[in-house]
């Protein structure tokens, strides 16, 4: 049985100007040991989908789904008390900005031990020993003394390590890393990604990497799912996605990478991501798509089969004859 099973997850936000669908029909299956990347631009609903699974969305959000199970628990019917037993323990998350995600009023040691006390019920001595062990595991030098440091006394890279130590403190079965390296420098980014990968290999947890950086995806993930305006438009294995994208959006996104440029001018995607009021009737990408026809503007495209990477497109590209047969 898979670790995480999500079918047709949708999240609507009630705003003063009407309801806004941030996530539309999100599907995901995760097995222990998987490394999956969720790629998309800002506003594509990649963080919101996972916040919904963790139950961290405000009351303005309406969450609907056909199925949402994690490790045998049905996340749709779970009581808040039961949910709190899972979140932070079996399912934990690393947030984007380490500087603002840590509480400035408490030492990092207190914050990391809090999780150990609540979820694992360790005594003081065991908590301290485990905290030191975790700090060493994530590569924080002088772990013993760093435990009594406040977040502002440490650099961004160190704070991100504290966040990671906190997230893996209870040996989670699934770790969600939401843009874990966006706020960091490249040399530190490389260290953090290595660390996440080695932790994943050691513990065999499932790792979800939410990012917009194609470079990070290419070097870390096994499976990649591409999100656009709340919908998943394609999901493939990483090498296949980079060499043979099936959705025009994925192809355009890859073509816009400066490192793939052959001329001084980069290929661009015209227009912007649709907002609350200009959501197209048919395919959400159709106004910006280079191969869109009238059909795309009026009819939402079907989701393709696994052979074309579940591409949500009327005219998937890079399809060979036997695939279309």
């Amino acid at each position: 049985m898979s670790l995480l099973e999500v079918r047709n997850l949708s999240v609507d936000f009630a705003t003063t100007s009407g309801s806004f669908r941030a996530v539309d029909g999100f599907d995901l299956t995760l097995n222990p040991g998987d490394i999956t990347a969720i790629v998309g631009e800002s506003g594509s609903g990649k963080s919101v989908a996972f916040l919904a699974m963790m139950g961290l969305l405000p009351w303005t959000a309406t969450i609907t789904s056909d199925a949402m199970t994690f490790d045998g628990h049905d996340l749709r019917a779970i009581s808040p008390r039961e949910r709190r037993k899972i979140v932070g323990k079996d399912m934990s998350m690393i947030f984007q900005e380490p500087m603002t995600s840590l509480n400035p009023c408490y030492t990092v040691g207190f914050q990391i031990k809090e999780a150990l006390r609540i979820h694992l019920g360790m005594d003081r001595k065991a908590r301290h020993a485990r905290a030191v062990e975790l700090f060493e595991q994530v590569g924080i030098p002088a772990a013993e003394t760093r435990l009594s440091a406040f977040p502002h006394q440490m650099s961004g890279g160190m704070n991100q390590r504290v966040m990671i130590a906190m997230a893996i403190a209870c040996k989670p079965k699934m770790l969600i890393a939401d843009e874990p390296t966006t706020a960091l420098d490249v040399t530190i980014q490389a260290q953090i990604l290595e660390l996440l990968k080695s932790l994943q290999e050691e513990t065999g947890m499932a790792l979800v990497l939410i990012t917009h950086d194609m470079g990070v995806v290419a070097e870390t993930a096994q499976q990649v799912s591409v999100q656009y305006a709340g919908q998943k438009c394609e999901q493939q294995e990483v090498t296949a996605l980079f060499s043979r994208p099936h959705h025009p959006y994925t192809a355009a996104l890859l073509a816009a990478l400066p490192e793939r440029a052959t001329t001084k001018h980069l290929p661009t995607i015209p227009g912007v991501v649709p907002g609350q009021f200009d959501r197209p009737k048919g395919c959400l990408f159709s106004p910006r798509c280079s191969i869109a026809t009238d059909l795309c503007g009026t009819t939402p495209p079907p989701v393709g089969g696994p052979e074309i990477g579940f591409a949500r497109c009327h005219f998937p590209i890079n399809v060979t004859a036997e695939q279309s047969a």
Partner: peptide, 10 residues
């Protein structure tokens, strides 16, 4: 060398 390259085969 630390800069991630968008090429999984590399």
């Amino acid at each position: 060398s630390a800069t991630p390259m968008a090429d999984p085969t590399l």
